[in-house]
Design a protein around this nucleic acid. Structure first.
Length: 808
RNA sequence: GGGCGAGUGGCGGAAUGGUAUACGCGCGACACUUAAAAUGUCGUGUCCUACGGAUAUGAGGGUUCGACUCCCUCCUCGCCCACCA
């Protein structure tokens, strides 16, 4: 018999879609579960087989929950603004509105073909004006609260993409080069005025929020590191013989008596002022050289530290010591105050610098163990050579020293974050227009009140080199009037491609609402997201950005909870043949639709989830899919053996065990072992004769989340339904029961260990006493033989597990 | 340099204190076939004197009747961050 998956898969995909059998119901009496998988961005590239793994596992889980009586929200949509789509449009010369439309239709088709149980009534697209109306509206909330601002600052510019990028969108490649996350193009620093969202103001709340969510430790740590909280103090050093002061940030205030020099960044605003005339040439030369170097060169690993003396001195406010002020490019303006105190005795980098330029090294900390220390000594310990502070532990010294700084007004406690303002404007066409206008003549900013502010259809949407948005060319659109009828110009930058995805999970709750971004009651019912599946690459981007938005909305009373996602799992990658990342240039991209054509969507679904845990990375292997294809064919062949009057205790027991185990594994998102349980049960069926109808029906229901098409076909057949009726779909049936009593044997074979080695087995019953078991064990001839002439010092019987004998 | 994670057959992996290697791939033998494919059956960590035994989860040590699992030291790999003061 051949397994004609094509016919059945097309038939059922069509029927399920038309009747939208997976719809979720607002305010249902059933308990809710919100299962979310990151939505794709429809550019020119079709979904590849890696996407399918990321959707298949959540789909199986959603199906399982639905069969267990939950009201499941499992939605899908399109993250359609942004660079990939726009670049594809530029490449093909077709307008992005057109290319995304085609791509969406294409992707949707693929997802339906794969049998994913999305509630398509809630489909949304970030480029739909009814959607981005609210993206703009929510942005204006940030503006109202002073969290969206125009700022001039050094930021990342990508010449290839012709736009600025946020810190999160810039990655470091293997050679230490800074590259764009999209397209991996080189990026450079530029001083530009841009819209930013002041995310650092939420640093503390974003950290706290991690305590109440169930994320893997690796994700929490990655976000914690990215936020980069560091507690310390800012100390003002007077520049000797002037009114100027230099402020340094330090986390080791306890070492300040060991400071022997100061280093400021070459970009420091005071550098020019404090440089003395005899050092001016040297400093300027150094400064210019630093300027020309790319960021990569400046931050190259293990690079030797360089610097030049400015000729000025700073006064240590604690002991009045005069410290030479240097400038050095290893001090960056973008962190702390752009100035550091050099404590060579207790900092490895300062030590290296002091060695090189023969600066003084003075010890201020000694080991609390009273042992000799090797300089540089980086640990905390006991403060020495520090006047009144000597003898204190490092932590005590820090608080006492800080008290002094505060009371004498030369310093203050300070918490620094690595997290930067989120650069929120892009010089690109394909994004949400920022709904703000500059009113003439003074250019003051007003909000656009008439939302959505539609992205105009322009013929020339190509990016320009002069860091101006292509929208600026469209004078008709740019020129507008203020609320008072005064002439005004629109902001022409657009939002970054992350904007739409910051709140899409809120919109799924109420996707058609045109009064509000979502009904608060519906949000209270559905939110937070119970399980969020996505990609590791979004840990410090989308996942952090959307937590930030949501937390801000919580503070405004717009959303019901502090955190948007209660649980998160990052999916791994599916590598192409040859264990390389699938890419068009290598030519190892596996097209899932082609695979589905050859083996069926069911076989593909089962294979990619059988590979191993969701979060791991695997190479594609063509032979693997043949195995799940074979499995499905075997299952289909078994149906002729189904009969009403069969009673096979062995099969029954395997069946109950399978139902129990698979339920357990699905709850723990372990699809790979769940599928192996199916294989084990099918192997049992293969070896037995006729199959009891009720067991067969139960098995089909268990199969349903994994191979939804075949399960539906078999279900309709065994129940002899002549006409399709959605309520009869196997996917709307309830998960089968299992009887634990049948699973657990009354008598079981348990191993016997002698001195830690397994030497035999014994049949014991549930109610056997330890005495009886001991007797039984000693009657086994092999055991008897091994124990002959030896003294049993210990006899251990762990019911259901093992017997352990220790003999001398 | 810091953080997180991982190291188990030829390969993907299973087992979170109780018979290590489930399940699958691959490989081998046999059956069916003119033959091949497909399918089926059996076998498949390594070593040995082989119906038995020894040995094995990156290396070494510890805790335990018993350790892939817990603890300590080290090695290797992956991911994230990084002249961050």
């Amino acid at each position: 018999m051949t397994y004609n998956f094509k016919k059945i898969e097309e038939k059922w995909a069509d029927k399920w879609y038309k009747d939208n059998i997976y719809r979720s119901e607002d305010f249902s009496q059933k308990p809710k579960k919100y299962i979310l998988a990151e939505f794709p961005y429809p550019s020119g590239a079709a979904l590849h087989v890696g996407h399918m793994m990321r959707y298949t596992v959540p789909d199986m889980y959603s199906r399982y929950l639905r069969m267990n009586g939950y009201n499941v929200l499992f939605p899908m949509g399109w993250d359609a603004f942004g660079l990939p789509a726009e670049n594809y449009a530029i490449k093909t010369g077709i307008h992005p509105a057109e290319t995304t439309k085609t791509a969406i239709a294409d992707m949707k088709n693929s997802l339906i073909k794969m049998g994913y149980s999305f509630d398509w009534q809630r489909e949304l697209s970030t480029i739909d004006p009814d959607y981005y109306k609210w993206t703009q509206w929510l942005f204006l909330k940030f503006y109202d609260q002073g969290l969206a601002e125009r700022k001039e600052m050094p930021i990342w510019w990508c010449e290839n993409l012709k736009t600025v990028l946020s810190d999160e969108e810039v990655l470091t490649d293997k050679d230490g080069n800074k590259i764009s996350e999209r397209g991996e193009h080189p990026v450079e620093r530029k001083n530009l005025e841009q819209w930013v969202l002041k995310m650092p103001e939420y640093a503390e709340k974003l950290l706290e929020g991690l305590n109440e969510v169930d994320f893997p430790e690796s994700i929490k740590q990655a976000q914690i590191n990215w936020i980069g909280k560091s507690e310390g103090a800012e100390i003002d050093f007077k520049v000797a013989d002037t009114q100027d002061k230099l402020t340094v940030f330090t986390t080791r205030l306890d070492t300040i008596y060991g400071a022997t020099f100061l280093v400021i960044s070459p970009e420091h605003p005071l550098l020019e002022k404090i440089t003395t005339s005899e050092h001016l040439i040297e400093v300027n030369e150094y400064k210019n050289k630093a300027k020309q170097k790319s960021d990569m060169e400046r931050t190259e690993l293990m690079k030797e530290k360089t610097g030049v003396f400015t000729g000025s001195f700073a006064v240590n406010p604690y002991n009045g010591m005069k410290l030479p002020i240097w400038t050095g490019e290893f001090v960056v303006m973008s962190y702390g105050t752009g100035a550091i105190m050099g404590v060579p005795a207790h900092d490895a980098r300062d030590y290296e610098f002091a060695q090189k330029y023969e600066l003084k090294i003075e010890q201020a900390i000694e080991s609390s163990e009273k042992e000799a220390v090797i300089i540089p000594y980086l640990e905390e310990g006991i403060v020495v050579n520090s006047e009144d502070f000597s003898g204190l532990r490092s932590d005590e010294a820090r608080s006492k020293m800080l008290e002094k700084a505060q009371s004498e007004d030369f310093g203050r406690g300070k918490v620094n974050y690595r997290l930067r303002d989120w650069i929120f404007s892009r010089q690109r066409y394909w994004g949400e227009p920022i709904p703000l206008i500059y009113v003439e003549p003074d250019g003051h900013i007003e909000k656009e009140t008439n939302l959505p502010l539609i992205l105009p259809e322009v013929p020339d949407y190509k990016p320009t080199s002069d860091s101006v948005s292509p929208l600026a060319k469209n004078q008709e659109w740019v020129n507008t009037t203020s609320q008072n009828g005064r002439p005004a110009k629109r902001e022409t930058n657009t939002m970054p491609n992350w904007a739409g995805s910051c709140w899409y999970f809120m919109r799924y709750v109420d996707p058609k609402n045109d009064e509000e971004f979502a009904d608060p009651e519906k949000m209270r019912y559905w939110l937070p997201v119970d399980k969020y599946f996505g990609g590791a690459e979004h840990t410090t981007m989308h996942l952090l950005y959307s937590r930030f938005w949501y937390r801000f909305f919580y503070d405004l009373g717009l959303v019901p909870t502090k955190e948007p996602y209660s649980w998160r799992l990052n999916g791994g990658l599916l590598l192409g043949p040859g264990s390389k990342k699938m890419s068009k240039s290598i030519g190892n991209v596996i097209d899932p639709m082609l695979v589905a054509d050859n083996y069926g969507a069911d076989a593909l679904r089962m294979f990619i989830s059988f590979l191993g845990p969701y979060e791991d990375t695997y190479p594609w292997n063509e032979n693997g899919i043949k195995s799940t294809w074979r499995l499905l064919k075997t299952i289909e062949d078994l149906k002729v053996r189904v009969s009403d009057d069969v009673d096979d205790k062995n099969v029954e027991k395997s069946y109950h065990r399978m139902v129990m185990n698979i339920g357990d594994m699905l709850e723990n998102i372990k699809m790979n072992t769940a599928i192996s349980e199916i294989m084990i049960f099918v192997n049992v069926l293969k070896k037995s004769g006729k199959i009891n109808t009720e067991i067969w029906k139960g098995f089909i229901k268990v199969l349903a989340p994994f191979a939804p098409f075949m399960a539906e076909e078999l279900w309709q057949e065994i129940n002899e339904y002549e006409k399709w009726n959605p309520t009869n779909s196997v996917h709307l049936q309830s998960w089968p029961y299992y009887d634990e009593k049948i699973v657990i044997d009354e008598t079981i074979l348990i191993p016997i260990q002698i001195n830690g080695k397994v030497r035999g087995e014994v049949q014991v019953s549930e109610n056997d006493t330890e005495e009886l078991v001991k007797e039984k064990v000693q009657q086994i001839s092999r055991v008897e033989e091994l124990l002959k002439g030896r003294n049993i010092t210990k006899f251990l019987y762990i019911p259901r597990k093992i017997i352990s004998i220790v003999a001398e």
